Simulated scan of single mutants.
Amino acid sequence: MQSPTPFARIGTRGSPLALVQARLVQEKLAQAHGIDPASIEIKVISTGGDRSQQSNASLTEIGGKGLFTKEIDQALLSGAIDLGVHSCKDVASVLPKGIALPAFLEREDVRDAFISVIAGDLDELPRGARFGTSSIRRTAQVLRRRPDLVIVPFRGNVDTRLQKLVDGVAEATMLAVAGLNRLGQGHRATAYLDPSQFMPAPAQGAVGIAIRQEDQRLAALVAPLDHRETHLGIVAERALLRVLDGSCRTPVGALSRLEGDMVLLRGEIISLDGQTTVADSVTGPAGDAEALGAALGQRLLDGAGSEVLARWAQS
């Protein structure tokens, strides 16, 4: 006897954090439609980003953010799954043809956490200490504050990176507070970094739901899960990133806030050595979130100038 057809099939990476996020979508989808969560299937899909974790190379070096979503997008387009669940900061700024990102769960804490077994905060690290990260944004932000630190490659899931600290691979690292909280490991944070000084990655802390662009049934199913404030902020931040991705490979930070019907968006681009920062902000109607993000991205490019960007690209 054949198993009943699932209400929906969720595709996700197999990391502990990805599975927590997929189960959260499963639970919320079941609640929204009054069904048993067990009728919503979760399918684990191995991605190129997962398979590359052992290399310790930064995502910029090996192909960019799409490495964590490509195979899930392919499964979505082929009809093997109905929904893709992603950490939004891992989603490429330009979606593949036929894919839409219509819904976002309420955003978690956007900040980064400083984690160390020897120091209470970044300033307490001894001179020349090793800081573990493979994020070009975090590298630039750390070097901007502490140019004496030595950056060492540091990839892997949350538990892997925490274990590397214990093993002495580095004296400190930086992780997203959202991921720690979702895994029940918020207590691992040694200190919380001020987002005005350590601006998060665009879309950090948000979980997005991807569907096939023309699938009206799925669009209606996920609509109740969409959190308006999060949605507007992510649209603005991703629009900013889309402009910058098209022009330079450089560390990008973004931070949005909704106040009434107005979006406040701040952004920055930083040289890889952390010694030069171009920052700006925009405010405008929430309905213009995408246009505001694109405008700020262009202002950051204009503020840096072609000579600076060329120099950064060669560094």
Rank of each mutant, 00 (worst) to 15 (best):
P4A: 14
P6V: 11
R9V: 15
I10L: 13
S15E: 08
L17M: 08
Q21G: 02
E27S: 12
L29N: 13
H33D: 11
G34T: 03
A38D: 07
V44W: 01
D50K: 02
D50L: 12
R51L: 15
R51T: 15
A57R: 06
F68K: 05
T69G: 09
D73R: 01
Q74W: 01
V85F: 06
S87E: 10
S93C: 10
S93K: 06
E108S: 10
D109Y: 00
F114Q: 08
V117F: 11
V117C: 11
A119Y: 09
G128E: 13
T133C: 14
R137L: 15
L149F: 10
F154L: 01
G156L: 05
N157G: 09
K164H: 14
A191P: 07
Y192A: 05
A201E: 15
Q204N: 13
Q204W: 00
A206Y: 04
D215F: 09
A219I: 06
A220C: 07
A220T: 14
R228I: 09
H231E: 01
L232D: 10
A239E: 04
L240K: 08
R242N: 10
V252D: 08
L255C: 01
L255H: 07
S256Y: 08
L258F: 00
M262Y: 00
M262F: 00
L265K: 01
G267M: 06
L272P: 04
D273P: 06
P285W: 12
G287P: 01
G287L: 08
A289K: 02
Q298F: 06
G305P: 05
E307P: 01
A310C: 04
